[in-house]
Design a protein around this nucleic acid. Structure first.
Lengths: 206, 206
DNA sequence: GATTAAACCTACCTACGGGTATAGTAGAAT
DNA sequence: ATTCTACTATACCCGTAGGTAGGTTTAATC
């Protein structure tokens, strides 16, 4: 007497092909990771959320580590794309930096962005850890480059570009910890306030 | 035929009474936690580092969770003490804020300080998590208070105290991730640079 | 309506790591 | 010497969670 499996096969979700479902899994994983942390998120939890059992997950993914890695890759990719978008604009260094930061702030408060910031890379082993480290590093270096450009073109006050990068990223990354969409401030509000705080660091002295 | 236990009982370390040894355990734990992460630090690793076996550890501590909690408590205590120290000085709001931040920067790059920032409180369960949350929160609220005081006494530019707190703490907390004592800059160097970045946020407009 | 491939499930294996039961030793006090 | 306490080790338990073997359902296709 099978328990009347009426609407089975809903599983990972009605519509969507293999890759589509795989992506749904990653989204839900990112959500759970930010919600409960990586180590606290069991594969069964993930499966449950998708109305599926664990082995079904393994139809779409190779291992838990792969899920984490994929989530981080998606996040890193987007950050990299934001950085390119800023860099390829025809603004001054300062302008590019602001373009990036406004995009980054928004990215930082969604599930993938949060994972990138909150994930402890030591969770990953060997090759994957190195891969993530490089992707993360790439963004930081590009920002430092943009800042350097701003210093040269006179739009940003002279300073150590890497230090300013760390300071800015530190501030904006903190969003992923304390910012919640239910609050009274929007990400945009906070972003403008943050940019204001760094006014003197970023605006060149006459 | 016992394996010639020459200098045994060295264990947790020659000199030091019970509480002393307990503290040594916590120090080494903090070191390993910052080095390898919490979840990646096995109790056996900790025991090994102290030339002791796991059961010996349990002579001094109740559980792994207790170790983590104690480490966090030590870190939180020190931060609280820094905050009080700043608050009880007779400086302006801005002066107090700077006193705190200079102390905090130094605290942030040692093992206990790093644990406080890098630890995922979700690791702790129930009461302990709440306790840590409150201790952490206390520091943030006090800083916001100090900033508020600075705004009122005219030493700090008008702004949302909580937002400035998040921005500052975000920047300084990032130290615990990327700062290494082997680098060419000292914490003090970085601190002054960071304070410079926030100059316009913190210096009141005339 | 039989065939097939993708999707899915039940039931299991296994490693790992926190924690313990138990027993033994060192040294101080009696 | 005996005994007591603090300390340490060996050997084990056991829950948990990642991962798998192998069979079943679904739905599209012939």
């Amino acid at each position: 007497m099978k328990p009347s499996r009426e609407a089975r096969r809903i599983g990972v979700k009605e519509k969507a092909d293999h890759d589509g479902r795989r992506h749904i899994i990653l989204c839900e994983a990112a959500r759970l990771f930010t919600l409960n942390g990586f180590q606290n998120t069991k594969l069964v939890d993930l499966a449950d959320r998708l109305n599926v059992t664990k082995p079904t997950l393994y139809h779409y993914i190779e291992s838990k580590e792969e899920i984490i890695h994929q989530v981080l890759t998606i996040g890193n990719e987007r950050n990299a794309s934001l950085v390119r978008q800023a860099r390829d604009s025809s603004e001054s260094g300062l302008g590019k930096l602001e373009i990036f930061l406004r995009g980054y702030a928004r990215a930082t408060v969604d599930d993938f962005g949060r994972c990138v910031i909150l994930a402890d890379p030591r969770m990953l082993s060997g090759r994957l850890r190195e891969q993530h480290r490089q992707a993360y590093r790439y963004v930081l270096d590009e920002i430092a480059d943009i800042i350097g450009e701003g210093i040269r073109d006179g739009s940003i006050r002279d300073c150590d570009p890497h230090l300013l990068t760390f300071a800015l990223m530190g501030t904006f990354n903190s969003l992923s910890i304390w910012f919640h969409h239910e609050g009274k401030m929007t990400v945009e509000d906070v972003t403008e306030a943050f940019l204001g705080f760094f006014e003197s660091a970023m605006a060149a002295k006459p």
